[in-house]
Design a binder for these strands. Sequence first.
DNA 1: CGCCAGAACATTTTT
DNA 2: TGTTCTGGCG
Length: 748
Amino acid sequence: MTALLTDLNPEQLEAVTWPHQSALILAGAGSGKTRVLTTRIAYLLQSGLTQPQNLLAVTFTNKAAREMVARISTMLPINIRGMWIGTFHGLCHRMLRAHYEDAGLPQAFQILDMADQLAVIKRILKERSLDEKVLAPRQLQWFINNAKEEGLRASQVDTRGSFNRTLAECYQVYEAVSMRGGTVDFAELLLRCYELLSRNEILRDHYRGRFEHILVDEFQDTNRLQYQWIKLLAGSGSQQHAAIFAVGDDDQSIYAFRGAHVGNMRDLEKDFSVPKIIRLEQNYRSQGNILDAANALIENNKGRLGKNLWTAAGKGESVRIYYAATDVDETSFIVDEIKALHAEGLSLSEIALLYRSNAQSRVLEHGLFNASISYRVYGGMRFFDRQEVKHALAYLRLVASPDDDNALLRVINFPPRGIGARTLEQLQDQAEILGTSLWQAALKVCEGRKAVTTRGDQPGRGIAGFVNLVLSMQQACEGQPLPEIIRRVVDQSGLVAHYQAEREGNNERLENLKELVNAATSFVHEAEDDSLTAFLAHASLEGGEHQAEGYQDAVQLMTVHAAKGLEFHSVFISGLEEGLFPHENSRNEPNGLEEERRLMYVAMTRARQRLYLSYAESRMLHGQVRVNVPSRFVDEIPEELLKRLRSSGFSGAGYRQGLSGTGQNTVSTAYSRQGRGKHTPVSAAVRVAPQGLNTAGLHIGQQVSHTKFGTGTIVNYEGNGSDMRVQVNFHQTGTKWLSLTYAKLVPL
DNA sequence: CGCCAGAACATTTTT
DNA sequence: TGTTCTGGCG
C-alpha cells in the first residue's frame, strides 16, 4: 500500500485516497492524470475498499483503455478480470450483447461505422429522390447523430417547418431501415444502452448494485448522452449508489465540434454535490518557460474552472519563434532545425511537427522527403477502413447476418458478376413490395426463377450466383474456428482472384486480405468471445489501432488534435497565422475562438524541452497564394518568454500590429512547387522517407541513371515503403514512373 | 460496366 | 493545388 502511494504529490494523494464519494479532478496537462486514475483503482482494490467486479472505468479511445489495463496490471498482482474497463461504446456494446433481447435487437446485430452509416443515408435520400442540394447526406447524418446524442428519437424531434419535417421523416426511415437490417450505429450503441437501463428497472438495479465506483477519463470530452448514461448507472440523488471519479481538464476541451460538452464538469459538481475540485497543477513534463507561455495564453479564455500549471524543473529554454516569408521558407527552417537537433543526438521520434489542418502536412512532407529525413504521418486510413478489407468484412457480415442490406449492396456485384443498376433496382423494388430485406427478396427471386427457367443464367453470375455464393459460404463456415471462417470467406468471395487479375498496384490489397486472417488469429487469442459476430464488432469498434507499425525513428507529423495526450522533447507548431490557426471557420462557431485557443494550449503543452512556433507571411492554400497576418495567439505569449528568430529576407513588419483584419488577401500566383502527380490513395498512415540501401540519398531534383532509359532527373514520387515509386524525367525517353523495388536507379 | 474528363470542394475526429 | 465525386461515353 505505502509503495503505491509514495512519490505522489499532495494533490495526487488526495485524489487517489478520496473517500467513497463523487469527485472531480481537474488534471492539467502532464500532471499525472493517468497515474492518478490507475493508482486510484489499485488503491481501492489493494486496501480492500472494493472488488474488481465493482469497478467500472470508462475512456474515449481503445488506446487509453488498454493503457489503463496495462498500468493497473503492473501495479497489482491481482487478476483484473471482472473489472469493466473500456470505451463508452465498447461498454455499451457489451451490455447490449448481454441483453440484446431486452434491448430489442437481434442476436447478431451489426455495428455501422460512419462510412456505413453514410451509405445507408445516401440510399435513403436516393430512394426518396431528395436532391443532394436540398439535403446533403452529411447534413442528415449529422442531424441524426446529433439527435441521438441529445437522446431524441425520430418521433421526438422538432417537426416545425418543412425542412425539419423532412429531416424527421428521413430519420424515421433510417430508424426503420436499421431495425430491419439489425444494424446499430455508434450513437445508437449509447442511446440504446441508455434506454435499456432507463426502461428496465431490473437491469438498472442490477448494474447499480454492481458498480460502486465509476471512473471517467477525459471527462471534458463527454457529450450529453454519455453524461446521462453515467448518471443513470451511478444513480443520482437519493438513488445514488456509485461514486463517480471524473478526471478531466476544461482547458483541453477540443472536441466541442463533435458534441463534447464541457459544461458536464460543472453539472457533475452540482448533480453529485462534489464538495471540492481537486486541482493537479504540478506539471512533470514541460519546462518553466513553456508552461508560463501556455498559462499566459489560456488566461485569455473566459469561464474556466481555473488552473495554473507549474513545474519544479527550471525555466529551461525560451520559446523559439520564427517568422518566415513563405511556407516553403518555413519548411526549410524546420528541416534545418531538425537536422541540427538530430545531429546533436536527439532521436527523430522525439520531434513532433504539429499543424492545425491536414492540408498543411504536404509542404512539410515535401521538405522532409527532399532532406531524406524519415517521417511518419498520423491520421491516415485505418486498416479496417480499406476498401478490400471492407469488402471482405461485408461478406463476413452476410454470413453472420444476411439481412444486412448495407453489406449486401457493398458486395452483390463485387467482384463483378453481372448485376447492374437495373437488376439491383428490380431487387430493391421486390424488397419494397415484400417489405423484407434485400437478401430475402433475392432468395425469393431465385426460387421463382428456378421454377420458371434457369436459361441464360451462367453459373456464379447474376442474383442466383450471388445467393448461392453466400449460402455456400454460410455452409462452409458452420462450426469452423474464426480464422478458418475468414480464410474461407476471403477465398470463396473471389476477392483475391479479382485483385490478382487486375494489373498492378494491388499487392498491398492482397497483403491486407492476408492480414485480415492474421488479425482474426490474434483476436482469437486475446478475446474471450471468439465468435464471428464478436470479431465483426471488434473491427468496427477497435478499427484502426491494430496496426502497431514497427518502431522507426522518424519525425512525427500530426494535427494538434491527434497530438493530445502525447509528449515530445521538441515540438514545432507551424502555420501560426490568422485564418489558419485560429482557423477562419471557427469564427462562425459559438466560442470558436476559445476552442482554438485551447487547441493551441494543447499543442504547446506537448513539448518537454523545446518549443518552436512558426509563421509564414504567404502560404499556398487551395491553389492560391495567400498573405496572412501572424496568429493572435503568438501575441498572447509574453515577449520575455520568446526568442525571436528571423529569416533573412523577412520584412519584419506585420507582427504585433493591428490584428483586426482578416489577414487573407489573395496576391500573386507566381509561385511554383513540385506537384505530386496523381497520388495513389494514401492509405498508409506511415510514409517514411527512403533510407535503405536502394534509396539512399534520392530526392527530387536528383540525377539518376537507368540501364534502359539512360539518365534523367527525379521530378516526383508517390507511395511509401516498398511501394514507393518515383517519376523520372529521362533525357531521351521522357518522364516515366518507376517502382523503386524493381527499377535499378543509380544516383549520379 | 468501366473508364476518363470535368466539376466541386477543401478544419479538427473517435467510436 | 490536390483530391474526390459524378456523369457521359465507349
